[in-house]
Design a protein around this nucleic acid. Structure first.
Length: 571
RNA sequence: GCCCCUGUAGCUCAACAGGACAGAGCGUCGGCCUCCUAAGCCGAAUGUCCAGGUUCGAGUCCUGGCAGGGGUACCA
């Protein structure tokens, strides 16, 4: 519809007298919005206002000319010029009912759009190293990534969900050492102990920055059961590390499954070492004179690529370390190789979901990719940065650290508030805003959580449909033109926005937009429910209203499916 | 110091690539169940951090402050 109107508008513009020579009506971008004030019609455009300056004439004058050309467009009931020059369009009733019939026909496919048809996308998310259970912070990442992946699927993309991890770094070594210390302690409870700065009492061989979570001792216990003292002679922490990795990954997997997150691929960072891709990056950069040795380390000449450091108002080029003097690469190097790998796999869109602490590192990776694979390739990478989650308990912020075990796990959160609430809580806010998670509120007030509002509306409709079926009513062949009540009409219009809302949420990578929209749908339904009874009405009216209820359930169910939240039949 | 993100109702957050009187939830106050789920509906109150600027029009863009978070590492 919007495209049709846009074409008519361009045609009308072309008919205006005395157009400036450089003005091309076909090039005009015509934007429509759905006004928040119903008095302003169903669709509104501000083209006349936008064009006032280039056309050098009054906006209302342009608007009048355009408006008069839209009146005859099929499906348009009324066109008016309002305010400073807005063109407001009201849709014809039969256009609206025809669209509703179309919606009903599509059923569980309703809302799918074809923007990405035939294209592929990869979304990398979670990507927690196996050093401990997933925490609330990982939860935001997991749920955001998963939902963005869903949105891309609904917009036509074939999506791969990938979990990137590193089990070879320093963190893992410390974890292995932590397990070993606990293991030794189990074998010899009398062994010397020490007290860490936070008061924890640990075996003397426990690393000062070791992992203190209970799961570390659990792994140690399992090792004692399986091997007895057999590992006592191990020459390094390797067997302990491997046991820990296995146990932690199993737990992570279970947590994700519970959250409704299922990955397609797990990508081990080691892959880009084993294939030599990492050293290839260094070599290629060196060839281009963009990498060099200094003080025993290998540097990426990001300074030549525009990276600067500002101090006291003076800008100086800033290079970046790729390989430390110890021979150990920094994470940027494998990250570049990993992104080249994703590009080589041919994805049209490459989405990374990162916490705010990655903001500074992203540009380095992009620079590397740009140099080695070109602009087109680099532009295929999109990074969704989300701000941190602040946990609040008893009105106090909780400092979280996996090492110190002062974290709240995702499992604990789900135990307390449920999986649906957990997902919704992470999705209802824009990724760019800090998320304050008040545990007490989430626990105590979980019944008041907005997610129940959506689920309630769905359950209510399901109940009505059951009763209607029992009463022998059917929506089949309903005369939708009978839906004339104001509440019914605005509900229909709300439902018709669904595909656009999905597109908007996908483009912005902002699932919260969909969450907000679904609330509006539920609200519109509640009003319809209040004003228009179904059971007990004359059969033709009941049938039409039943069709509208069915359509509403479709939108709620499809929307909740995208958000990964259950749509209950009863509550 | 410098860079990035954020600052909207008592609290937590929306506001669709600047658009027409800034919207929800929770909380507060007041109404509504002889009728399909009251986990609901209806009504009331409270407002864009501060100072400039651009624009027909600014919560949205620019400049300068102030506040919170994150970066600025041969940690991830």
């Amino acid at each position: 519809m919007e495209d049709t109107l846009a074409q008519h508008i361009r045609a009308a513009l072309a008919q205006l007298p005395d157009l400036p020579a450089e003005f091309d009506p076909q090039a005009v971008a015509v934007e429509f919005q759905t006004p928040n004030n119903p008095e302003h019609g169903d669709l509104a455009t501000n083209v006349a206002l936008q064009l006032a300056k280039p056309l050098r004439r009054a906006p209302r004058q342009i608007a009048e000319a355009v408006a008069s050309a839209l009146g005859s467009v099929e499906g348009v009931a009324e066109v008016e010029v309002a305010g400073p020059g807005f063109i407001n369009v009201r849709l014809a009733k039969d256009y609206v009912t025809a669209a509703l019939a179309e919606l009903l026909g599509q059923g569980e496919r309703y809302g799918r759009v074809l923007d990405g048809e035939g294209k592929t996308a990869i979304v990398e998310y979670v990507s927690a190293n196996p050093t401990g259970p997933l925490t609330v912070g990982h939860g935001r990442n997991a749920v955001l990534g998963d939902t963005v992946a869903n949105l891309l699927e609904w917009t036509g993309y074939a999506v791969t969900r990938e979990y990137y991890f590193n089990d070879a770094g320093r963190q893992m070594r410390v974890l292995g050492e932590s397990v070993r210390a606990r293991y030794e302690q189990l074998l010899n409870p009398e062994m010397p102990q020490k007290t860490l700065e936070d008061g924890t009492v640990v075996p003397a061989s426990f690393p000062d920055d070791g992992y203190r979570g209970e799961y570390v001792a659990d792994v140690a216990r399992q090792l004692v059961e399986a091997h007895g003292e057999g590992l006592h002679e191990a020459k390094d922490e390797t067997p302990f590390k491997q046991a820990a990795e296995k146990a932690v990954f199993a737990e992570i997997e279970a947590t994700l499954q519970r959250l409704g997150v299922e990955m397609d691929e797990h990508f081990n960072e080691r892959t880009v070492y084993d294939s030599g891709a990492v050293w290839n990056v260094v070599e290629e950069l060196t060839k281009r004179d963009l990498a060099y040795e200094k003080n025993g380390a290998t540097w990426f000449a990001t300074g030549k690529l525009g990276k600067v450091e500002t101090r006291d108002g003076a800008e100086t080029p800033k290079d970046t370390v790729l390989v430390k003097a110890t021979g150990e690469p920094t994470y940027r190097l494998p990250d570049i190789a990993y992104h080249l790998d994703k590009l080589a796999r041919g994805f049209d869109r490459i989405v990374d979901v990162f916490g705010a602490d990655h903001i500074a590192t992203v540009p380095d990776v992009i620079r590397g990719v740009r140099v080695l694979a070109g602009d087109e390739a680099a532009d295929r990478i999109e990074v969704l940065i989300y701000q941190f989650v602040t946990l609040v308990r008893s009105g106090q912020p909780v400092k979280m650290s996996t090492r110190k075990a002062t974290y709240v796990t995702l499992d604990e959160l789900m135990d307390e508030v449920g999986e649906d609430v957990t997902r919704f809580f992470f999705l209802m806010r824009s990724p760019g805003t800090h998320l304050e998670f008040d545990l007490d509120l989430a626990k105590e007030a979980s019944e008041k959580n907005p997610v129940f509002y959506l689920q309630y509306a769905h359950a209510r409709i399901a109940s009505i449909l059951r009763k209607a079926t029992d009463a022998g009513l059917s929506a089949e062949g309903a005369d939708l033109a009978l839906l004339s009540h104001e509440s019914a009409v605005s509900l229909i219009k709300e439902l018709l926005r669904f595909p656009d809302e999905i597109r908007a949420a996908a483009e912005a990578m902002g699932p919260h937009k969909l969450a907000t929209y679904l609330r509006e749908v539920a609200s519109a339904f509640s009003q319809f429910y209040r004003d228009c009874r179904i059971l007990g009405e004359p059969e033709d009216v009941a049938s039409a209203r039943l069709a509208l209820a069915t359509a509403t359930r479709t939108v709620l169910a499809n929307g909740l499916a995208i958000l990964g939240i259950s749509a209950p039949q009863e509550m």
